[in-house]
Design a protein around this nucleic acid. Structure first.
Length: 492
RNA sequence: GGCACUGUGGCCGAAUGGAAAGGCAGAGGUCUGCAAAACCUUUUAUAGCGGUUCGAUUCCGCUCAGUGCCUCCA
């Protein structure tokens, strides 16, 4: 299996640190707002990564954090505000109420999209002590300094022994942006906060050797990833917009904290994976720029369409995770058609297997379709840096063959095909088999089903009488509530 | 200004130093009371200019266009 490693800019063969085990850390959300479609792209991709490693038989530990404190926002160099604290003022809720509200929303959305939960989902507030320990250590190593109750990482000093910018390929000296002011407390523009002083009456704040404060965002990820995966682990993932500064700073802290020898090759994770941006009208989907689509709104609009979460997943996986993906209504419609086409052919295969089981297949001529070769191609696709679009195109190939009734009869190893296409579609790509999210009781559903069947039967009778007005009206009404009827010739 | 990435038909989107996947849309057809669906057939593409090469869409250089990051971001 090959993975594109952002550290080297190349596709590399994947070797886990420990045989049979894979450790993955993905930067989760800061829970101060509802998720938008762009956020989900990353989580959907890593859901596939997680599923695929498990499919291959690895024991995977997948860690995805929740940032519930410490994500600072720079206010034009005047001050730094915690995002959640800021939001709590806007909504008139306690910070932890904000955290609770948006954590629940986050879980609901990912659950609807059929994402597997990570093995560990640590929160920043649950790891304050560890973060304080790391800050202390960095001060002892003279790689961080305290000013007015806040602590900053000394990037210039770090850069003398290590190289700051190895991940983002930034040159330390060229990082200065003259247009931007920076906090006066900092020695250098490039330095970043690892501990931030807060007002003593502030509800979100912890006692530390430097007074009451909150930990910095970058520190949190270094602490939690290494706590649960070790000081060197396999895969670290996140959106490409986190590459700099967030991931660069994570590496800087980890190297400072864990390495004893200079020029150690430990870059926190061996493979860094970055998902590209989802755009709207060619521009990055982003909250601060105001162009974004919230998933909960999409779900509300498409309530009638019960396979909508699958369509979102299909839309996302139909492009490669390292390319920019543009969102449009049309692309969703395309995805819907594509998804349904493959879904339909899965049913055909399953039916065909049923028939084979009852009737013995005596067909002598064999199909030109080579199932073993096809399976091999599918693995090749996903093994090549998770090339899901290529894998999906292979599913379409089967779909085209299977819809030909003569051709499907000839496929000798149909049971093998059934097994693997189900593996790829449900187990690896993670599509949901059926949406049984209704709260309606089974009793009620049964009654409804009888009613609809009666109506269809009634329409059939009217059709046979050539009473087109009635039958067309029923067809239209049923279509409006999401039941579409496809008529065949009445002569047959 | 610095760093990085991208450019494939009408649209989306793979692959590749040696006849350019797949999907959507379009066109034609089968079917049909009509509609829809389904199925079959089918047109159209490597941004531009150079270089390396027997051969470049692929590698290299330049130009043009777009995107991301440069301390809020998945």
């Amino acid at each position: 299996m090959r993975i594109y490693n952002s550290l080297t800019g190349k596709k590399e063969l994947f070797y886990p640190i420990h045989n049979d085990y894979v450790g993955i850390y993905v930067c989760g959300p800061t829970v101060y707002n509802h998720l938008h479609l762009g956020n989900c792209r990353t989580f959907i991709l890593f859901d596939v990564v997680f599923r695929y490693f498990q499919h291959l038989g690895y024991k995977v530990r997948y860690v995805r954090n929740i940032t519930d404190v410490g994500h600072l926002e720079n206010n034009n160099g005047q001050s730094e505000d915690d995002k959640i604290n800021k939001r709590s003022k806007i909504e008139g809720l306690e910070p932890m109420e904000i955290v609770q509200k948006y954590t629940i929303s986050f879980h609901n959305i990912l659950n609807t999209l059929n994402l597997l939960p990570p093995n560990i989902e640590p929160t920043a507030t649950g790891h304050i002590i560890e973060q304080i320990d790391m800050v202390k250590d960095l001060i002892n190593k003279k790689l961080a300094y305290e000013v007015n109750g806040s602590v900053y990482f000394n990037v210039r000093k770090y850069n003398k022994n290590y190289s700051y910018g190895i991940l983002s390929r930034n040159n330390f000296h060229q990082l200065i942006n003259k247009n931007l002011n920076f906090l006066e407390d900092k020695y250098y523009y490039q330095d970043f906060s690892i501990w931030k002083k807060v007002n003593p009456n502030h509800i979100m704040g912890w006692n530390s050797p430097w007074g009451k404060g909150i930990p910095g965002w970058h520190t949190e990820c270094t602490v939690m990833s290494t706590k649960y995966l070790g000081k060197n682990f396999d895969i670290h993932g996140g959106g490409i917009d986190l590459k700099f500064p967030h991931h660069e700073c994570e590496i800087a802290q980890a190297k400072s904290f864990y390495t004893t020898e200079k020029n150690s090759s430990n870059n926190l994770a061996n493979y860094w994976m970055h998902t590209n941006m989802l755009t709207l009208d060619g521009k990055k989907m982003s909250k601060s720029k105001g162009n974004f689509i919230e998933l909960r709104n999409l779900f509300l609009i498409r309530k009638k369409n019960d396979c909508f979460p699958n369509i979102i997943r299909f839309f996302v996986l139909q492009s490669h995770y390292r390319s920019i993906l543009n969102f449009s209504e049309k692309s969703l419609l395309d995805a819907e058609k594509g998804f349904k086409k493959i879904f339909l052919s899965l049913n055909i295969i399953n039916d065909a297997c049923q028939n084979r089981f009852t009737k013995k297949n005596n067909n002598e001529t064999s199909s030109s379709f080579d199932t073993s070769k096809w399976i091999h191609s599918c693995y090749q696709a996903i093994n090549d840096d998770f090339n899901t679009p290529l894998l999906i195109s292979l599913l379409f190939k089967v779909s085209n063959i299977v819809t030909d009734a003569n051709e499907i009869e000839k496929i000798s190893d149909i049971f093998l095909l059934k097994k693997y296409i189900n593996h790829f579609f449900f187990e690896i790509l993670g599509f949901k088999k059926e949406d049984n999210q209704t709260n309606v009781s089974k009793e009620k559903l049964k009654k409804l089903e009888i009613l609809v069947n009666r109506l269809i039967q009634f329409r059939k009778e009217e059709r046979e009488k050539k009473n087109w007005f009635i039958s067309d009206k029923i067809r239209k009404e049923l279509y409006n509530i999401g039941i579409s009827l496809h008529d065949k010739s009445i002569n047959k």
